[in-house]
């Protein structure tokens, strides 16, 4: 082997390495390179939302608004978004992420924002429908053919049933689920005020996996954990409509309809974008957006669209959080007093 050939090989190797790295750099920087003739960068809206909202917003509502805005003004809009457990989102907003709009799973998280002075107390209630974007009841998802014969929340307390439940620390859905479970036992049974506690204890004895968000709990269930998952109807209906549903939906006799507040955070909106963000928020309650939510498995807050809820199951005795006196009362009397202070210690957790 001549030294000339090895020198050539070395040069070639060096050249290849440099070409590889330069190619990577060019690929990475491509969208930001100042190439003439490129369209101006779009305007942005930063939206943080709770977990199950992700697909409905990314695939349907965001593109619909962007299209409408471009038709009206000729400007392009891009949505910068993050979806995670409602509690996680709220914590991130408290820590200072640049969220302009936060869509939370429950009003309790909105109160946490107003308690810390991020937004004015109750400011979201000035939006249409008291700031509630859409609804969805809490249901039970079981394996195909319902092999364990689960027909109501009470069946989840039976020995030998493995339940997947989101974590109430970070998941809004988990808080809704606890209220649903408790309510299903106590509603219509004024003679047995402690039935809620008994049912929660029974169900939580059977909880085998806790995930940070309703979405993550769903993924755990799909990966084979547990016999039953307590979750938003929306997730299940949406997948069923797309032929992707693995499992069967069980409607409890009585369950809560969750309602999801939209919180606008004025202090994090640059003044030049205020009109854009307001237009987007207004759009959320338009017929077009509400229909998109229905297509994605949510129930609309607009009574006029009630008739379009095909494919949704019937719940004998649905209730809302206002029936319990609002989230502050429900959190204190159900989640804290019963689940946290009694059920968890009794289970030794």
């Amino acid at each position: 082997m001549s030294s000339k050939a090895s020198a050539l090989a070395r040069t070639l190797q060096g050249a290849l390495t440099i070409a590889f790295l330069a190619g990577l750099a060019l690929y990475a920087a491509w969208p930001w390179l100042p190439i003439p003739g490129r369209a101006a960068p779009p305007r942005t809206i930063v939206v943080y939302g709770f977990s199950i909202l992700g697909e409905a917003m990314n695939d349907a509502v965001f593109p619909a608004f962007a299209k409408r805005w471009e038709q009206q003004t000729g400007e392009r809009v891009e949505f910068v978004s993050s979806f995670a457990g409602s509690g996680t989102i709220t914590n991130q907003v408290l820590l200072g992420v640049p969220a302009e709009v936060a869509i939370l799973s429950l009003e309790l998280d909105a109160f946490r924002l107003s308690d810390k002075g991020i937004v004015a107390e109750g400011s979201w209630r000035e939006l249409p429908h008291d700031g509630m974007l859409n609804r969805t009841p809490f249901i039970i998802l079981v394996r195909d053919g319902n092999p364990k014969g689960i027909h109501d929340f009470a069946d989840l307390a039976r020995p030998g049933i493995a339940v997947v439940h989101p974590d109430p620390l970070t998941s809004g859905g988990a808080n809704w689920a606890i209220v649903a479970e408790h309510g299903s036992a106590t509603r219509g049974h004024p003679e047995a005020p402690d039935a809620g506690h008994a049912l929660l204890l029974g169900i939580w004895k059977n909880v085998v996996a806790q995930a940070a968000s309703a979405r993550a709990a769903r993924t755990q269930f799909e990966n084979g954990f547990g016999d039953a998952l307590i979750t938003y109807e929306q997730e299940v209906v949406r997948d069923r409509a797309r032929g992707k549903l693995k499992g069967e939906i069980v409607y409890p006799r009585s369950t809560v309809l969750s309602e999801h507040p939209v919180v606008v955070i004025p202090s994090r909106i640059p003044s030049r974008d205020r009109a854009l963000v307001d237009a987007f928020v207004e759009f959320l309650w338009s017929d077009e957006a509400q229909r998109l939510f229905i297509e994605n498995g949510f129930r609309s807050v607009d009574p006029a669209l009630e008739g379009e809820h095909d494919g949704f199951g019937v719940i004998e005795d649905p209730f809302r959080i206002d029936d319990l006196g609002g989230w502050k009362v429900a959190k204190r009397d159900v989640v804290e007093a019963v689940w946290k202070k009694r059920v968890l210690p009794e289970l030794g957790r």
């Binding site: 930063v46 949505f79 910068v80 978004s81 992420v97 640049p98 993924t219």
Partner: peptide
């Protein structure tokens, strides 16, 4: 934040968690 501060590993985790 997608399209702003989401790195590839974070994307992988977020997408996996979302199923």
């Amino acid at each position: 934040l997608r399209l702003r501060t989401q790195t590839a590993p974070l994307y992988i985790f977020a997408q996996f968690e979302a199923g």
